[in-house]
Write a protein that binds this DNA or RNA. Structure first.
Length: 624
DNA sequence: CAGGTTAGCACC
DNA sequence: AAACGGTGCTAACCTG
């Protein structure tokens, strides 16, 4: 047994390392003495728990003053004692427990289901104390920044620097040091052994700081995190054959368009400098500049050129698109699929300032939605169908409920066309459903929720200032309760520095951007609606079928014979009555692959013509 | 030359 | 008086 002593916040703490199996006798004594509550952590070869070749290297357990480092990589009794400790201790504190529980489940054979009931997560606590990242004026939610804020800045600096220094010493990168470092390297052991000590201290310091209004959210957020961790573990089945064909096809597209761009003088389509230079050479007047003073050559700038048939603009856009789609999505899916052909997303169930989730690995929130190509890579389990259940106009319904605006509530209660109502308030009763005015109104309906005004409406619609003003005024006239709520929230935000959502969550609002308070409230409450839906689905036993949450939507894989029934049942469970507003859902069974649900008509029924067209496109592209 | 920043683009 | 909120990922570019 090896012991490392270190100073933390004026105390001397002791890190003990089990080097040989005989050392475990003392470890067991330590666990018995702290069987009610311990902090725990694990170190692995990387963050990709499900990647082939991934290994867990260490498990660590500790109190505020003492920790033990167990080299589970050596297997045998080390792994066995770790299992017994995880299962035997009554309360386990983690910093981001979702990660460690996947490690325990996949690489130690301890099912997450057995651990979740006793998990407490300092990251969840930290988010409820202050949801802001460091860039936003908060403390952040990583162990290092939390240590700096709540425990001991000197220790935070050591933690920050230690693995970077090791990477240099081992002549490798920060990403690779985790698998390269010697299992008993003293710096590594100090780093690893410190983690549970810090987590234990964080728990003590931060738990009392959770505002009274937010305390009921503690249990709720642990449950949401648990459900998301099961989705991560399940993974989403990849259609490898299709995905490989798609990758090859995209590569072909990229090369074809790159060649055209090259003949027109652009060697590297991804270089904005080169692109701008080439257009200036062609006599195009570039006007807009970026923040750092460069010529802007984004989609909005290229759009009119493409419409005018400019070959270079078309070639650059298409080459960039094909390249990005391949590298960001298609090839990443192929590279990260596990031995069963499943991709595992990483779901941060409590991420944004507004508590919105984020999903990485499979960046589910940013996959192209109007184009079926990318989502089509993911398929239902054998014998299953994909279904997607989304909330109907979730944020607007939530806004109606929160603002109590009579017109908006009334419109939703009779399933009226909200965009048409806004359009008519702006332009008059003669406006029809398929008019361009309704399209402008739609932009404003969403834009107002985001806090946008006349200028942004102009940018998005191309309208002149007066007409844009007319639509915005139409919105404000149609739903006066919205402006009223916004005003009230801004007052609250300026007074307190935060607003409180109906779920009790505190949302800090920057004084110079008080207008964002309305958006924060709507976005956060919408997220809570989706998460309450997830909890209901979990309680009803649907968890094994859940694949991904996407803001206002849940994607599931359901046994084919029960898919219609299941999707409708899920839709019912997710539906929530918010005061006078029914936040209802729209279940759609898509078929064998994800993405096909987008070939539906306005009633949500399959649009066979569109589907046939999509199939023809797939065949024509040689992807079949 | 590893790692941070910027520009651009994908989504709700 | 007016105010576009939130997210992730890549290639290019920049820097210590």
């Amino acid at each position: 047994m090896k012991e490392i002593r270190h100073k933390v916040d004026g105390d001397t703490v002791s890190i003990k390392v089990a080097e040989v199996e005989e050392d475990l006798e003392d470890f067991r004594t330590f666990v018995r003495a702290n069987v009610k509550v311990l902090a725990a952590d694990s170190e692995a070869t990387g963050l990709d728990t499900y990647a082939p070749g991934h290994r867990t290297r260490l498990w660590q357990f500790g109190t505020a003053h003492e920790s033990w480092v167990i080299p589970v990589e050596l297997g045998g009794q080390f792994a066995e004692d770790t299992r017994r400790t995880l299962l035997g201790v009554s309360e386990l504190w983690f910093q981001n427990g979702s990660f460690d529980l996947q490690e325990a489940d996949k690489h130690l054979g301890v099912p997450m289901e057995k651990l979740w009931p006793k998990v407490r997560d300092t990251k969840i606590v930290s988010h409820l104390v202050d949801p802001r990242g460091q860039e936003e004026g908060g403390y952040g939610h990583g162990l290092e920044s939390l240590t700096r804020a709540y425990i001991d800045p000197a220790v935070a600096d050591e933690v920050k620097g230690s693995m970077t220094a090791l990477a240099r010493q081992y002549k490798t990168t920060k990403a690779k040091i985790w698998e390269k470092v010697d299992l008993f390297d003293p710096t590594y052991l100090l780093y690893a052994g410190m983690d549970p000590i810090l987590a234990a201290r964080l728990a003590k310091k931060t738990l009392p700081l959770v505002p009274a209004s937010s305390r009921p959210l503690l249990a709720f957020e642990h449950e949401v995190s648990e459900i998301c961790s099961y989705m991560e573990r399940t993974g989403f089945l990849l259609d490898r054959e299709y995905t490989e064909r798609l990758s090859a096809w995209l590569l072909g597209q990229e090369e074809r368009y790159k060649e055209i761009a090259a003949t027109l003088g652009v060697e590297n389509v991804n270089s904005t400098d080169q692109v701008a230079e080439a257009f200036i050479q062609r006599g195009v007047k570039l006007e807009k500049r970026t923040a750092s003073g460069k010529f802007q050559v984004d989609k909005a700038v290229l759009k009119p050129l493409i419409e005018a048939g400019d070959e270079l603009a078309i070639a650059i856009t298409e080459a960039k698109k094909a390249g990005k789609w391949r590298s960001t999505w298609v090839d990443t899916f192929l590279a990260t699929a596990d031995e069963h052909g499943r991709c595992h997303a990483s779901i941060n169930s409590l991420r944004a300032r507004t508590a919105r989730m984020s999903i990485t690995g499979i960046p589910a929130q940013t996959l192209p939605s109007s184009d079926w190509m990318i989502r089509r890579c993911f398929v239902a389990d054998p014998g299953h169908d994909i279904a997607s259940v989304d909330y109907k106009a979730q944020e607007l319904r939530v806004l109606a409920a929160l603002s109590g605006d009579h017109n908006m509530i009334e419109a939703f209660s009779r399933d009226a066309d909200l965009h048409l109502i806004t359009a008519r308030a702006a332009f008059g009763e003669h406006i029809t459903k398929d008019s361009k005015e309704r399209k402008y109104a739609k932009v404003v309906n969403f834009g107002r929720v985001y806090g946008g005004g006349v200028k942004t409406v102009q940018e998005q619609t191309g309208l002149d200032k007066e007409t844009a003003q007319t639509v915005v005024d139409g919105f404000d006239r149609a739903y006066p309760g919205v402006a009223r709520l916004s005003k009230q929230l801004q007052k609250e935000a300026r007074r307190d520095g935060f607003i409180t959502t109906p779920s009790g969550r505190r949302l800090p609002v920057d004084a110079d951007r008080a207008y964002s308070a309305l958006n924060y409230l709507v976005q956060s409450t919408s997220r809570d609606v989706t998460c309450r839906g997830l909890v209901k689905l979990h309680k009803a036993g649907f968890t094994p079928y859940l694949r991904l949450p996407v803001h206002d939507e849940v994607v599931v894989s359901l046994p084919r014979e029960k898919a219609e029934w299941g999707a409708n049942r899920i839709g019912e469970l997710m539906t929530e009555q918010m005061g006078p507003v029914l936040v209802s859902t729209d279940p759609v069974v898509a078929g064998k692959h994800w993405g096909s649900e987008y070939q539906v008509d306005e009633n949500g029924d399959p649009d066979w013509e569109l589907r046939e067209k999509a199939d023809a496109e797939i065949k024509a592209a040689g992807l079949w």
